[in-house]
Design a protein around this nucleic acid. Structure first.
Length: 808
RNA sequence: GCCGGUGUGGCGGAAUAGGCAGACGCCCGGGACUUAAAAUCCCGUGUGAGGCAACUCACGUACCGGUUCGAUCCCGGUCACCGGCACCA
């Protein structure tokens, strides 16, 4: 009988599904384990091999943990709101809901063909009103607690999507999704106060098990920096407040710079002698995109404010004030004290404008370059700070400033609030109405879900208004507060909304009273192991941590962090080593691979391809190796079919126990490639030494998480009871793993000369004797003296030889 | 520029509390089976030199240097590539 993967796979997928083999229960006395993969966006392009890698990995983990006796929750759903669907719907004139439904159907079929052990009874979709009801509910809670607010500000506007983007969605000044250019646009937007959680988002990273580089990337993105806010008097009655991390260099501040958007400029309009010049500069700066503003960062531009000066608080010196676009309105106070001797940017600006550069920290040559070291240097030209080192100076000046009441310690973050509105159709409607009298008013919770209305055209508008704005009978409504005339918010939520809490819904997916019941959330607690892409580190991962902390604050969830452990997979590249893309024509379709070799082969190869965390190029040749391996397992197993034994044979015992240990440990450490290599090695041993039914039994159990279909099929063929997938994971016995003799290396002066076999755990002396009596070594000893020997038990012996002195 | 990571055969990749470099797989070569081929099974396969031969010697983990009986692993320096951030005061 040949290995017919297609028939076998269909058969077992049906059995698993009918028997509800992978259903998770809340009323189990087993230990719970919640494993999670990032739910996909069901695009029209279908499943990608990039999906198969993390899904297979977590499926292997989940299957193995189930076999180890855990009550595993491994769910699946759809992150189905979003632009590609909407764009496709516009192009094909089909409703996005219809497109979504079709895409989910296709995706589900492809995913099922891979034999994943998802609990499909918990399937969810973010576009389901029963689901987005709770997304809207969370928004209302945020709004009620002042964490959602509307603000007019310059935002990132994608020229192609005709939609605003969050800062996190802008990559290299282009739209993260479509790559089109992003421009600044003044718009009124709903914002979420993620900045309020900045410190906690950093602190709580200490409590979770994430990849170190993920933690680091989040910390860098949040960008905490500690410094001092200092007030500078001016020749007007106003003060200019600046933020600095280098208060120690205050004596070196020879001028100030404020951003072109600084509010004092309006106030000072009548006092300034060169208003026209300033206005012109402001206009030029405003017209520049962020791209231009940062791209030209070598050349500093600016305009001095004529008629007003500032006073350096430490030495009373009158210093000029400039506006320049190198100072950002959105960070700190939008104003800086410039210390050209010790800051790159200030130095460049001072050079360009001929401003004085004073050395206040000794250590470099400031005529050549600014000295920016923050660790070492002695203060000079700094009055009462002279002679101190920088850290002492920092302390002293900070104390001095606060005693004078003109400067206080302050923490700043790079993180900005989350721009939450999108001017598109296919998203959750924001449940807010605007009343002429009452202003913004929350829709009553009893009205949720606020259903996304049917609309004739979901085309974006050139004015940047949401398509929903065109549906007048939906937009015009009554104010929930005063009953007067009011209009609904027509923007929708970003795609990140639905994915910021979906893992909670899996705990209790059909609850129509609550987002999640207390009982369910207390049982499942939080996600134990979440695997996902590195590209979501500053998007989904940060956003969902924020929402979870908020839900903790309002008592919905019992944990401050949503995910106990986070791992990430590397990308699968095309056969040419390039990123897979349609235009390059190097895309591998998983369904075609399954068609040709079977799902088990696909699963094996995608895990065998290389280190799970690293990128790896696809190889259509190497896939065959995995199919060949499964064929070998198949043939070997059927040969052993006639046997009766259940226990492993003595001859294979050591190999089997070693493999059980290796495969188990490797799965836990996500070293799937070496786990598979160990299985291959075991099969090679079986081919060499022969294998009995009992040997095959363990092999099938170890293989089951990786290639579950063939494992269950052979399990049945060999007449074992139940399903391989549902058996306990095999145990190993350390004492059965070691052999009676060891082959150890014999080195002479650190170089390998030969190997010898000695009894396991032999005494050092016995090893030395065995080594020097070796033919090759004894030959060398005729011309040399043994001066020293180093024995590493069961591994190696190193003999240090010196040539004999033939003179005596 | 700053932060993080990586660099090993023809290829994907193994092995680091310092201890036989190249597991496992692909490709390639040889053999068995077959009328023949495919498939399968067995053997070989880092590079160079020598030998009829079992074999012997030298070199080899990006590059240069150090520590050590012994370094892919630790230390110092250099180069290349990848990812993130980037006028954040």
């Amino acid at each position: 009988m040949n290995y017919n993967s297609k028939a076998i796979e269909k058969k077992w997928q049906n059995i698993w599904s009918e028997k509800r083999c992978f259903k998770a229960h809340e009323n189990s006395d087993k230990e719970k384990l919640y494993t999670l993969i990032e739910f996909p966006y069901p695009s029209g392009n279908g499943l990608h091999v990039g999906h198969a890698r993390p899904y297979t990995a977590m499926d292997i983990v989940s299957r193995k943990k189930r076999m180890q006796g855990y009550n595993v929750l491994f769910p699946m759903g759809w992150d189905a709101f979003g632009l590609p669907t909407e764009n496709y719907a516009i192009a094909k004139k089909i409703h996005p809901a219809k497109v979504t439904e079709e895409n989910i159907k296709g995706f589900k079929a492809q995913i099922n063909a891979l034999g994943y052990s998802f609990d499909w009874d918990r399937e969810i979709s973010t576009t389901d009103p029963e689901y987005y009801k709770w997304t809207q509910w969370i928004f209302l809670q945020l709004y009620k607690r002042g964490l959602a607010y509307k603000a007019t500000m310059p935002v990132n506007w994608c020229t192609s999507c005709k939609c605003v983007l969050a800062n996190e969605e802008v990559v290299d000044n282009a739209c993260e999704r479509c790559g089109s250019s992003v421009v600044r646009k003044e718009k009124s937007q709903w914002m979420l106060k993620i900045t309020e959680y900045a410190q906690r988002l950093i602190d709580d990273l200490d409590e979770v098990d994430y990849l170190e580089r993920v933690k680091l990337q989040q910390k860098n993105w949040i960008g905490r920096s500690t410094g001092v806010e200092v007030d500078f008097q001016t020749t007007e009655s106003d003060i200019i407040r600046v933020f600095t991390t280098r208060p120690d260099t205050l004596f070196g501040s020879t001028y100030m710079v404020i951003s072109p958007e600084h509010k004092l400029l309006t106030k000072w309009e009548s006092k300034l002698e060169n208003n026209n010049e300033i206005k012109a500069y402001q206009e030029k700066a405003a017209a520049k995109s962020d791209f231009e503003r940062t791209e030209l960062n070598k050349e500093k531009t600016g305009v001095e404010l004529k008629g007003i000066k500032a006073i350096n608080p430490v030495n009373g010196q009158m210093i000029p004030i400039y506006i320049s676009d190198y100072v950002l309105a959105t960070y700190g106070t939008g104003a800086i004290m410039a210390v050209p001797g010790h800051d790159e940017r200030d130095w460049a600006f001072a050079k360009a404008f001929g401003l004085p550069i004073i050395e206040v920290v000794k250590g470099g040559d400031i005529s050549q370059a600014p000295y920016t070291d923050t660790q070492s240097g002695i203060m000079v030209n700094s009055g009462f700070l002279d002679g101190l080192d920088v850290s002492e100076a920092k302390e002293k000046i900070t104390r001095w400033l606060s005693e004078k009441g003109i400067g206080f310690e302050k923490v700043n973050f790079k993180l900005r609030d989350w721009v939450f509105s999108r001017q598109r159709y296919w998203g959750e409607p924001i449940p807010i109405v605007h009343c002429e009298k009452c202003g913004y008013v929350a829709v009553d919770e009893s009205e949720l879900p606020l259903i996304l209305p049917e609309v004739e055209s979901y085309e974006t508008t050139e004015t940047g208004e949401s398509p929903l704005a065109q549906i007048k009978d939906w937009v015009n409504t009554k104010c929930p507060q005063c009953g007067g005339k009011a209009e609904r918010e027509t923007d929708t939520m970003p795609q990140w909304a639905g994915s910021s809490w979906y893992f909670l819904r899996y705990m209790d997916p059909h609850n129509d009273k609550e987002l999640v019941s207390k009982r369910a959330v207390e049982y499942w607690n939080r996600v134990d192991w979440y695997n996902g892409g590195m590209e979501h580190t500053t998007l989904h991962l940060l956003y969902s941590r924020f929402w979870h902390k908020f839900l903790y604050d309002i008592g919905v969830v019992p944990t401050v962090e949503p995910y106990a452990k986070r791992t990430s997979h590397g990308m699968i590249l095309g056969e040419d080593g390039q990123k897979m893309s349609k235009s390059r024509g190097n895309v591998v379709n998983p369904t075609e691979v399954i068609e040709r070799y079977g799902a088990d082969t696909m699963r094996m190869y995608i895990m065998f391809i290389g280190d799970f965390e690293k990128t790896a190029p696809w190889s259509s040749e190497a896939v065959k190796g995995c199919r060949r391996f499964l064929e070998r397992v198949w043939n070997l197993s059927l040969k052993a079919k006639t046997g009766k034994g259940e226990n492993c044979s003595e001859i294979n015992e050591a190999s089997i126990h070693r493999t059980i240990k290796k495969v188990g440990e490797d799965i836990d450490a996500m070293k799937f490639n070496t786990a598979i290599a160990a299985l291959m090695t075991l099969v090679n041993v079986f081919y060499e030494k022969g294998a009995e039914r009992g040997d095959i039994k363990t092999l099938l159990l170890l293989l089951s998480p990786f290639a579950p279909h063939i494992a269950d099929e052979l399990w049945e063929q060999l007449g074992f009871k139940g399903l391989a997938s549902m058996q306990p994971w095999p145990a190993y016995d350390e004492s059965k793993m070691t052999e009676s003799t060891k082959t150890i290396a014999v080195q002479v002066n650190g170089k390998l000369k030969t190997t010898i076999d000695v009894k396991t755990d032999s005494e050092d002396n016995a090893v030395i004797m065995a080594a020097i009596s070796d033919e090759k070594i004894s030959k060398l000893l005729k011309t040399s003296d043994l001066t020293k020997s180093i024995v590493v038990r069961n591994k190696l012996i190193n003999l240090i030889l010196k040539p004999k002195n033939l003179d005596n």
